[in-house]
Design a protein around this nucleic acid. Structure first.
Length: 933
RNA sequence: AGGCGCGUAGCUCAGUGGUAGAGCACCACCUUGACACGGUGGGGGUCAGCGGUUCAAGCCCGCUCGCGCCUACCA
């Protein structure tokens, strides 16, 4: 599939041509190709977000990274959509004929496919557009044909006439997986068990059977009873007369089919339209009479009911039976309906010749590969589910009675009946060499071509360089709902045709649901279009996108029920932007099976994007003159603040890398979010301000370089999650602050610069400890002020007292910062050697061994301070008590690890100290409130 | 029926045997110079319940209750 040239130019910022010879460094993800039927939904947005983050991470780490785009022809789904379109014109596909119909589908596909690719670009997906594949591209068709023919030659592809699930709406057979079971609700019968009598031929009586599908009696060829059933001992072997057909049939004994405890104990046998009856028919050599046409109407075997739809016939049969005096009552009954995954129509079991793939030997290999760890699942729990399904696997019915898809490459000879399966279209029968051969009209299950995706997209069956380099793929990332449909089948086909797993790691994500946790569907009217979140949309647009063709008021009601938080929504969604939507989606852990859309949280990430933008703006106004530094060099400052922030950068870098490596994007996003907002912005940026305002030239230069480094590193860390904003900000940085990497003559961009790594600095425990003290002191001053109701503008003059000289030096160094951040007029530092008195009338707190004392200057209610102190004392004592209790337990001190116990002892000592100081403080406050004492 | 999960703050959800967390919401204060899509401070928990293992359990084991999903079968 070609791409508009403009797209390529726009993507040039990240684009690096993959090297098809660099296998050692290869990193590959083949996208789960979206169905060509529609536009992108939230599930796609999630998939694109996760994969793009992983891919950008790999690319920035210098991997030879291929993310291969594609679209799936989606056999039934697409055919149904185009047929619906035709119906609006008053046409059916049969009016057009096969050739013109498929042409029409191709037209439709061209429009739809381009739109899907465009939407992927909006989400920021850095796909390798030149390698885009459509599952019906000529080379893909060739791969499909090769796979089919070689499976046939190996005896793993065969045709058999068996019971299958037939969808009368789609007029095709379905595989077991495409059958949806609809369980009846507890205690709510959804059908009727209708009993009627077959009169015995010898006139000695009748036998009563019960069924939920009375119309199938037109295909009955026996009545079965249990051989041990005392009720029917005399009847076995007798014959009954069919009331509406010229035939009689036997009452047989079948212990497997007949269940004495159910119904009347006698069961009608319809070998042509029931899985169990078919087995019974085989066991007992019964005739099989098919009564259904492909569209679900009754055929000539339906006798008087021929031509009626099965449900119309059901009522007609019941009436006829009743009229004949054979009805024997009806009771409400609960049965699970088997429905078509696509049309939701009720399926009919019929016997039909279809193509099957033998699964057992293929599945065994796949199970072994997973057992041996050649392919791993995340979350791990899926391994069990996978194994269970794979060890109970049934043969795969791959033929479909559709027109849209890969046509089965089998020809049947009109003369000798032989089947010719061939890579090239044959002109003669391979058995008798006769020319009267006709091609099987059926096409293959969509998932058959999908199963070949990881290698067919790379050129298989040709031995291409790309195949050599990028197979196995590194990661398969997709929804858990298609684990069996797709992942398992790719594993089997990959192992079979390539001799190796198709991918090393499988990451399965959950499903994006509405606020209430319901799966999004147009029928429920709770679908949210990710692009509406990205671009913003009016309420009307949102609601119209949420359901399909429902009246507005009705649609609005359903939408509001699904999203209670939007009840106040008048204007619709603001434009959150693709980056915020991505960051939001990436923030969920992989084990979440449901992701309930949370607009408040999304807005939180929109705010974060804003924060990044504003922080960048601030930094830019100060670092224009930042000094040159060679690529790879990072600052080595002396100050506590700088050393601390660099240490925190190092921490964030390692957390983000770990998160991405372990597929914990939630942890990676949390780490960069917390660092950027709570450390870089809340603290380092604020500590820069006094330096920029009045610091020495050397200090300014150093702080700026550190600031530039931190911002630049942050933007690189953010890039996998918010590519547009990070790139935009990064491009605005002065040359000197940017890392620069030339990439094949294309525009340089953040996307092709190295991802932060251990090279970007290390943890600095000393600086972190010093900074903890500084932060603790500042926070204590603020807390005391807040709790005592000291106005922010008040001219407070806190005294900071410590016995540690180094701490005092740090506090002195940051005098300006402390004043600025606490709005204090003046800070006094005091060195104590223990036993110092606490001055009277001060607000008091202790943090990290530093006593914080704020003269209250008579404006303060001493009672409030007293209350606060009492509360603190109670808190401290409670903790100390439980800690002491634990430390008095010899079992604990004897068995717990030494460092755990030591930590507790330190903590207890600290609590005792604090308790004493608070006590002293409380007594001075008491004095303050009664100065006469 | 079998299998896999889930139950943690008002809501949505993290949590790796060692002092219970985040975002949003809430309360109070602050229109400070990157940002009110902001800042500061605060309140809020019987970690569904019961029992067990352990010095120590939200986490491990068993049972119960409630809620999902998957697979199979049911004239």
């Amino acid at each position: 599939m070609s791409n508009p040239p403009a797209a390529r130019a726009r993507d040039a910022g990240w684009y690096v041509a993959v090297d098809t010879r660099d296998n050692a460094n290869a990193f590959t993800i083949a996208i789960p190709p979206p169905n060509v039927t529609g536009s992108l939904h939230m599930g796609h947005a999630l998939m694109l977000t996760i994969q793009d983050a992983i891919v950008r991470h790999a690319r920035m780490r210098g991997m030879n990274t291929l993310w291969l785009p594609g679209i799936d022809h989606a056999g039934i789904a697409t055919q149904v959509v185009v047929e619906r379109e035709l119906r609006r014109e008053g046409l059916t596909r049969h009016d057009l004929g096969r050739e013109r119909f498929t042409e029409r589908v191709w037209d439709w596909k061209a429009r739809s496919g381009d739109r899907i690719y465009e939407q992927m670009r909006v989400m920021g997906a850095s796909l390798d557009w030149d390698r885009a594949k459509f599952t019906m591209d000529p080379d893909m068709s060739r791969a499909v044909r090769e796979a089919f023919v070689s499976l046939y030659e190996q005896g793993l592809m065969y045709r058999a006439d068996r019971m299958v699930n037939w969808c009368p709406s789609c007029r095709t057979v379905l595989s077991d997986l495409e059958v949806e079971r609809e369980e009846p609700e507890e205690g709510k019968p959804n059908a009727e068990l209708f009993a009627f009598a077959y009169p015995l031929v010898d006139g000695t009586g009748e036998i009563v059977v019960a069924t939920t599908r009375p119309e199938t009696m037109m295909g009955d060829t026996a009545v079965a009873v249990h051989p041990d059933d005392p009720r029917y001992q005399g009847m076995i072997g007798k014959h009954v007369r069919h009331p509406f057909a010229e035939r009689t049939f036997a009452i047989i004994a079948d212990p497997i089919l007949a269940d004495m405890t159910k119904g009347t104990g006698a069961v009608k046998v319809t070998p042509a339209h029931d899985f169990n009856d078919a087995e019974c028919g085989k066991r007992n050599g019964l005739a099989s009479i098919s009564i259904l046409n492909p569209d679900g109407t009754l055929n000539d075997h339906g006798g008087p009911f021929a031509g009626m739809d099965r449900f119309v016939a059901r009522e007609a049969v019941k009436k006829a039976i009743t009229d004949a005096g054979l009805a024997r009552g009806a009771t409400p009954h609960a049965i699970p309906y088997a429905r078509c995954q696509r049309s939701k129509d009720i399926l009919e079991p019929i016997a039909s010749p279809q193509w099957y793939v033998t699964m057992k030997p293929l599945a065994e290999k796949a199970v072994r590969a997973v057992e041996e760890g050649r392919c791993t699942f995340t979350p791990e729990e899926w391994t069990k589910t996978f194994n269970y399904w794979m060890t109970n696997i049934q043969d795969w019915c791959v033929s479909r009675q559709l027109w849209w898809g890969h046509q089965v490459p089998a020809w049947y000879c009109a003369d000798c009946g032989a089947t010719t399966v061939s890579r090239e279209d044959p002109t003669a029968c391979s058995a008798c060499n006769g020319g009267r051969i006709e091609r099987d009209p059926d096409v293959l299950d969509t998932w058959f071509s999908s199963a070949l995706w990881p290698f067919a997209t790379l050129g298989w069956p040709e031995k291409t360089a790309a195949l050599e380099t990028f197979y196995p793929n590194s990661v398969m990332e997709t929804g858990f709902d298609i684990l069996f449909f797709w992942v398992a089948r790719m594993l089997m086909m990959g192992l079979h045709f390539m001799g190796d797993v198709p991918f090393r790691r499988v990451l399965l994500h959950g499903m994006v649901c509405d606020e209430k946790g319901n799966k999004m569907s147009k029928v429920k009217g709770n679908v949210i279009d990710p692009l509406d979140l990205v671009h913003g949309a009016t309420l009307r647009e949102i609601v119209e996108h949420a359901s399909q063709g429902a009246p507005y008021e009705e649609a609005l009601k359903r939408f509001s029920e699904a999203y209670p938080s939007t009840s106040a929504l008048k204007e619709g969604f603001p434009a959150f932007g693709a980056d915020a939507v991505r960051f939001y989606l990436a923030s969920h852990p992989p084990q979440s099976r449901k992701i309930n859309l949370n607009l408040a949280r999304l807005q939180g990430y929109r705010d974060f994007c804003n924060k990044v933008w504003n922080a960048t703006r601030f930094v830019l106004t100060h670092i224009a003159d930042v000094g040159e530094r060679p690529t790879g060099a990072f600052p080595r400052p002396d100050s506590v603040a700088e050393r601390w922030v660099l240490s925190r950068v190092a921490h964030a870098v390692s957390e983000v890398n770990r998160g991405l490596d372990e597929f914990r994007l939630d942890e990676a996003t949390a780490a960069v979010y917390q660092f950027f907002w709570y450390e870089l912005c809340d603290w380092y940026l604020e500590l820069c301000k006094p330096v920029f305002d009045g610091g020495s030239a050397a200090a300014k230069a150093s702080y700026k370089l550190t600031l530039a480094h931190c911002l630049e590193t942050s933007l690189r860390l953010l890039h996998p999650f918010m590519p547009s904003l990070s790139e935009e900000c990064w491009q605005n940085l002065p040359e000197a602050a940017r890392r620069r990497q030339t990439c094949g003559g294309l525009a340089e961009g953040l996307a092709v610069n190295p991802f932060p790594s251990a090279l970007d600095g290390a943890r600095d425990p000393e600086a972190e400890a010093a900074m903890a003290t500084l932060k603790g002191v500042i926070e204590s001053v603020r807390r005391v002020c807040a709790e005592l109701g000291i106005k922010p503008g008040a001219a407070i003059t806190p005294t900071l007292r410590t016995s540690d000289e180094a701490t005092l030096r740090v506090l002195a160094e940051y005098d300006g910062a402390i004043r600025r951040l606490t709005r204090a007029k003046e800070i006094r530092g005091e060195l104590t050697h223990g036993g110092s008195e606490r001055p009277r009338g001060v607000g008091y707190a202790v943090s990290h061994g530093v006593e914080v004392m704020i003269p209250l200057a008579g404006h303060i209610d001493p009672g409030a301070e007293g209350k606060r102190l009492e509360k603190d004392i109670a808190k401290v004592r409670k903790e100390a008590e439980s800690l002491a209790k634990r430390l008095n337990n010899p079992d604990y001190t004897g068995r717990a690890p030494a460092e755990v116990v030591a930590r507790d002892r330190d903590r207890l000592q600290e609590l005792h100290d604090k308790d004493q100081r608070l006590q002293a403080a409380l007594s001075t406050v008491a004095e303050l409130s009664s100065p006469q004492a």
